[in-house]
C-alpha cells in the first residue's frame, strides 16, 4: 500500500509500548514483518532522552511513526508533534487528541484543528479518529490523505465495535487509505477489519500483552494478510438457505445392500 507517496510492504502497523523488554519488542517486529511502528514521545524524552530505546528501534530498520499519545488538546498535540519531528527526523505523525480520559475517545474537534495546523507546517498527518464520516471529510480538507478510524477504545481488545460504521466509511472514502487503529484484540478482529476492505491495521496491546508477543505478532500478520486476500477475492454473500456443497455424482442404489 502507499501512504504519503511511500510504499509500505506490510499492512500491519505495530505500536511499541508495554512490551516486557526491548528485546521482545524487536522479536515481535521481526515476526510481524511490519515496516512501520508507532512510538510515543513522552515529554521526558525531550529533556533527557529515550535514546537507548530509540536506538534499539532503529536497529530493526523499520520506519518510525511518532505519535502524540496522551495529548488532551490540539495545542498539546501540535507541540508534541513538533518535538517528535526534531527527535525522530520525520514529518510523519500519528495524531491523537484524546477527548475523554476513561475511554480515550478522540476529541474530533481538537483533532481537525491540530491536523489543519500540522498539515500547513508540512507534517504528514495520520489522524486517530472515529468512524464519523463528516469528521473524516473535515480531516481530508485539513490536509490528511489517510484516515485511522478506531475499532474499539485503545487497549480494550474488544475488536470492531461498529463494523457497519467502518463499512460505510470504506464506501464513502473509496480512494482514501483507511487504517483501523485501536481495539484489535485477536487475529480474527484484524482479519475482520481487512475483510471490510480496510487498507491496514494498527495494533499494540494485543501483541505486547500476549504471553508470547512474537508469536502473536506473527499470528496478527497472517490474519491481516488473510483478511486482505479474502477482501480481494470477493467473498460470497451470506444467506439463510443452505446450499449443498457436495457435488452430485449419480444416485445411491439403496437396494444394493440387500442384493449382495
Amino acid at each position: 500500500m502507499e501512504v504519503y507517496d511511500k510504499k509500505l510492504t506490510s499492512r500491519l502497523f505495530l505500536g511499541t509500548a508495554q512490551y516486557p523488554s526491548p528485546a521482545v519488542l524487536q522479536a515481535a517486529i521481526r515476526a510481524s514483518d511490519t515496516d512501520l511502528v508507532t512510538v510515543s514521545l513522552r515529554r521526558e524524552a525531550a529533556n533527557g532522552s529515550g535514546a537507548g530505546f530509540w536506538d534499539l528501534l532503529r536497529e530493526t530498520g523499520v520506519r518510525i511513526l511518532p505519535n502524540t499519545a496522551g495529548c488532551h488538546s490540539a495545542r498539546d498535540a501540535i507541540t508534541t508533534a513538533q518535538m517528535a519531528r526534531e527527535v525522530f527526523g520525520t514529518d510523519w505523525i500519528k495524531l491523537e487528541v484524546i477527548g475523554h480520559a476513561d475511554t480515550l475517545q478522540p476529541d474530533v474537534f481538537g483533532l481537525v484543528e491540530a491536523a489543519r495546523v500540522l498539515s500547513a507546517e508540512g507534517f504528514k498527518v495520520f489522524p486517530y479518529t472515529t468512524e464519523d464520516l463528516v469528521v473524516g471529510e473535515r480531516l481530508l480538507e485539513a490536509g490528511c490523505t489517510v484516515l485511522m478510524p478506531w475499532g474499539a477504545p485503545i487497549g480494550s481488545g474488544r475488536g470492531l465495535a461498529n463494523p457497519e460504521g467502518l463499512r460505510a466509511m470504506r464506501a464513502h472514502f473509496p480512494e482514501v487509505p483507511l487504517v483501523v487503529d485501536a481495539g484489535i484484540g485477536r487475529p480474527s478482529d484484524a482479519a475482520a477489519a481487512m475483510e471490510l476492505g480496510m487498507d491496514a491495521v494498527l495494533l499494540n496491546t494485543a501483541v505486547a500483552k500476549a504471553g508470547d508477543p512474537a508469536l502473536m505478532a506473527r499470528a496478527m500478520a497472517l490474519a491481516v494478510d488473510a483478511g486482505h486476500k479474502a477482501c480481494l477475492a470477493d467473498p460470497m454473500e451470506r444467506r439463510d438457505m443452505a446450499v449443498p456443497s457436495t457435488p452430485v455424482m449419480g444416485l445411491a442404489d439403496l437396494n444394493l445392500a440387500e442384493k449382495t
Binding site: R42, R43, E44, A45, N47, G48, S49, G50, G52, F53
Partner: peptide, 11 residues
C-alpha cells in the same frame, strides 16, 4: 516505567 534518561523530579 518510562523509557527515558531524564533524572529530574517526578511528573
Amino acid at each position: 516505567m518510562v523509557e527515558s534518561d531524564h533524572a529530574g523530579p517526578p511528573t
